[in-house]
Structures are given as C-alpha cells and as structure tokens.
Design a protein around this nucleic acid. Sequence first.
DNA 1: ATGTAAATCGTAATTATTATTATTTAGAAA
DNA 2: TTTCTAAATAATAATAATTACGATTTACAT
Lengths: 136, 136
Amino acid sequence: MNLTKAWDILKENGFKETSKRQQILELFSKDDRYLTARDLLDVMQKDYPSMSYDTVYRNLATFVSLGILEETELSGERHFRMHCESDQHHHHFICMDCGKIKEIPVCPMDMLGAALPAYEIDNHKFEIYGKCPECK
Amino acid sequence: MNLTKAWDILKENGFKETSKRQQILELFSKDDRYLTARDLLDVMQKDYPSMSYDTVYRNLATFVSLGILEETELSGERHFRMHCESDQHHHHFICMDCGKIKEIPVCPMDMLGAALPAYEIDNHKFEIYGKCPECK
DNA sequence: ATGTAAATCGTAATTATTATTATTTAGAAA
DNA sequence: TTTCTAAATAATAATAATTACGATTTACAT
C-alpha cells in the first residue's frame, strides 16, 4: 500500500485530503511496522506538536475500516501498520522486538474447509510471534 | 481442568487456599466459556459483595501464569476461561455469541516447520471465530 | 496459641480510548 | 476569487479497563 493508493481510497469514499492525514500516512509508509496509537502520537507530536488524540484515533479507525491500515493486538495493546500490497489472503510472522512482519502465504483454513459443518465461521486469526533475523 | 487439579497446581507453587480463589475457580469450573474480568466481578459480587478489583485481576493473572486459566483477546477485551484438559497442543473455535469453544486438533505450525529458518519462533495464535450450532 | 508473609479490601491512580464543543479547514459552488 | 458548509481538528473532559497502594485480615507453619 503506497500513499497514492491510500489517497485514492480516501477520495473514493469522500474523505478530505488534510495535512494530518498526510502526516499519519507518510509515517506509516516510511515506517512499515506495527505501531500503537501512542507510538504514533509520540512521533507525530515531535514534528507537529498540535496533533490530538481524537485525530489520531479517529483516523486510525477510518484507515482500518477502509483497508488502508491493518490492526492487531500485541501484548495487550492495539497495533497498526500499513496493509500490505499482496492481494492474496495471507498471514504474518511478527517480530516482537521491532514490529516488522513477514508474510506467510499459507492459510490454515484451507486444510479445515469442511471440518466444522455445523458451525458458522465468520473470521479467523493466525499469527506467528518471535524475533526476525535482524533482532535475533 | 477440574478444581482438584487447579488446587494441586496452586499448592505446588506455594499459593494459599483462600475462599475467594475457591469462588473464582468454582465459577470458571461451572461456566466453561470465555469471560471478561468484568463478567466475573459482576457475577461474583451478587453472591459475594466484597470482592475487589484487585482480587479479581490478581488472581486471574496468577491462574493464567500457572496454566489454570487461558486468556485471549476478543472484541478488544481480555477474556479468560478454564484451560482445557487435553494434553495435546490444539487451537479453538470460539463462539462470539456465547463464548463457548470447540477444540481444533489441527495446528498450522506443523505444516510450516522449517519454513522460517532464519526466524526465532516463540509463539503463535490460531483461532477461528463465528457462531456455534446452538447460537446460529 | 502465635507469628508472619500472603491475600484481600476499599479506594485511588493510571492508562487507553472515546466523546464533546468550539474552532478551523477542504473543497464545492457562486 | 470569495463564500458557504460539512468535515476535520484541537483541546479537553469523560469513560472504562487495569493496576497500584495502605490498612486490615487470613492461611498456615511453628
């Protein structure tokens, strides 16, 4: 997901092009790892002191709902990162040190297709946690 | 996990047998689904009005660290339930209506054994969410 | 029975998140 | 370009989950 693509999505959905959104998206573009709302706010407020909680949380929610960002829960906190490019369904290895991810093309649901016939399956989560080669 | 087993573990680790622990464990034994700390506190305070936040959260943390309870994050909230009996590693289908679970004996890590040689794998999570036959 | 560390209670503090209101701004329309 | 209006934002307050603290009580070893 690059900036142009993100703005296309925002425009398609009638959202305005604001400097704060630009700043947030630029940060996520440059720094492709999982960040908490607090991480984001701390970094942003260095360069742009007037950035409020409301703006951060509201835009994070907007971006997630539009598929620009993806969200997961790590160590009890919500984390966000740019949604990856690849179209195919996949999962993630997540480095618990630096937050970087590696795509895992395998999906375990493929192997349990009809294993739960009486159940309604709405969603699933498969994540692998550890240390990436750089942090190991 | 039954009450006797839970108490064995607590005793082995030098924890005292208190009435509050008994009350909490009995509730989880009877009601084998995922509950939030708040759910627990609300139910407990009906029968035992003097049950403080501190006691609930402290014991939940203790029980999780000893493997008596297991914990997961559902809809943005921490949930707890009795750790299941079965010794073999497994995963869960979780009903998002009633919180009941179904064991999934398959583990996706089996199929990615050596797929990430340069990475240190510390943990993983695989959960399936939806509605159980009763709630569907 | 007694002593002591652990556990609990009642409450306060902390932290993440959401909500509110006044003000500002992007983008459309005149 | 100027003006208008809904959307976005800032500043702050409110809410909710969780953790922390000091005083008191309790389990259990001696």
